[in-house]
Design a protein around this nucleic acid. Structure first.
Lengths: 235, 235
DNA sequence: CGACTGGTTGAGTGGTCTCAAGTCCTGTGG
DNA sequence: CCACAGGACTTGAGACCACTCAACCAGTCG
């Protein structure tokens, strides 16, 4: 590995918002010897459903989608992850196989921590375990809320809500709206909202006609957040 | 409290399958002074969405449903819990309000652990924290699988799957099938499967005509598990 | 240039929801 | 004991939303 490319966990810009924010500088440095840097290109799979995890990924840059595949081949995106986020910790902690797969949306750099080395590191670090528990709780909460959303809301509302979540999580304020930085296909938006491609296209064009959203090149921009929120019947 | 009614956590018959199975006899006894026994009648609410948790419930007997209410008043059951299971730990651990409510389906007895006393107890008990993490992982996994199920499967399949899950979790083998011990209304089955009452009734009668299920009094019995599994397109 | 990927639109259909009427069951009070 | 109220359950009819299938367009890349 090129030492110039190597970045200590201690100095990582993502650390404040990452799982490792709870570590002391000294502890963070202890992570360095057990990690390796990995690069993934768009479309590459980070891990696949059914496989046993051999370690933990901490995203340095880029974006990935975590999804499950149904019997008919239809995919459901469980969540999107970006810099500072952890990949595959659910399966690792529970000692099971991955139930989801993870695919890279934008060229990504990740730190990989070997399973056993990480477990050893975690041993006796109560603050880290607490923090992991918090993340699990958070993920569980989100999952349960999406559960209701999927069960009760019609596609149109779900789609509006999906856009809002995208804006909140990956959006940057630009003039006249919120720009969603990740490049997502309609298909992927559909998989997030739990519907099919064509329905998504139809509703998106409707939203566009209503000036709720617009496109700049490949990028999606939310122009009228309040309007979308009204459709999503949030708040 | 009547000492005759008091049962030490150490000797609790639910302990082997509970969160506290990882505790030593000595540790389990330490739980006794910080718990109080509570009784709930059918229909009673154990906690409600929006409130801050003041402690943790461990179910001794009975069954509860944990659900979320949508804007239109429609309810979505997140999970059912029975003896040995923990209620409200997600909100407690993350220090948030409850996002769900819990209602008693069958008269229940629960042990209640005060929030601070429990946190103090958990402090430095790495094995307990590990175990909690495992449960969180498990719940997260189930939630994510249901996510896909809800997003992708039509109601008929979801309903069949719901029945199978009920059978697996709360069913007892009887002659000619699996008897589901909990008394659930059609409305509640609908809320589990993420649909409405009428649709549930229609499909259930269809299942009955096809001799996949039958009713004995109020109880639901699964006669043809393989048939249901085929409809649910499991495996 | 053709192949390919991503996006768009149309037509048709079927599943699910809604509204509405009615039945069955159970518990309650006269 | 019966009458009755209310809840749970059942069934029907109609509307509509979302899915499927299919054709087609617009870039992009080799």
């Amino acid at each position: 590995m090129n030492p110039l490319q190597f970045l200590s966990c201690e100095e990582c810009t993502n650390r404040p918002k990452s799982l490792f924010s709870c570590l002391s500088a000294e502890e963070a440095r202890q992570l360095d010897p057990i990690k390796t840097m990995r690069h993934f290109k768009r479309r590459e799979l980070v891990f696949t459903s059914g496989k046993k995890p051999s370690g933990l990924f901490c995203m340095s840059s880029g974006y990935v989608k975590v999804f499950q595949t149904g019997l008919d081949g239809r995919e459901q995106i469980v969540r999107l992850s970006g810099p500072g986020e952890i990949l595959g910790y659910r399966a690792l902690l529970s000692g099971e196989e991955y139930v989801s797969s993870a695919q890279v949306l934008q060229d990504s750099r990740m730190c990989f921590f070997d399973k056993w080395a990480f477990f050893q590191f975690m041993e006796n670090k109560i603050h880290l375990m607490r923090r992991i528990m918090e993340w699990l709780c958070q993920d569980l909460r989100t999952a349960e809320e999406r559960l209701r959303q999927l069960a009760q809301k019609p596609v149109r509302e779900r789609l509006a809500e999906t856009l809002l979540i995208l804006g909140k999580t990956f959006g940057k304020s630009v003039k006249m709206g919120i720009k969603i930085e990740i490049r997502l296909t309609r298909q992927e938006i559909a998989e997030l909202a739990g519907t099919v491609l064509e329905t998504t296209v139809r509703h998106l064009s409707e939203f566009k006609r209503q000036k709720l959203i617009r496109f700049e090149g490949k990028c999606l921009i939310l122009c009228d957040e309040a309007g979308l929120r009204k459709i999503a019947r949030q708040n």
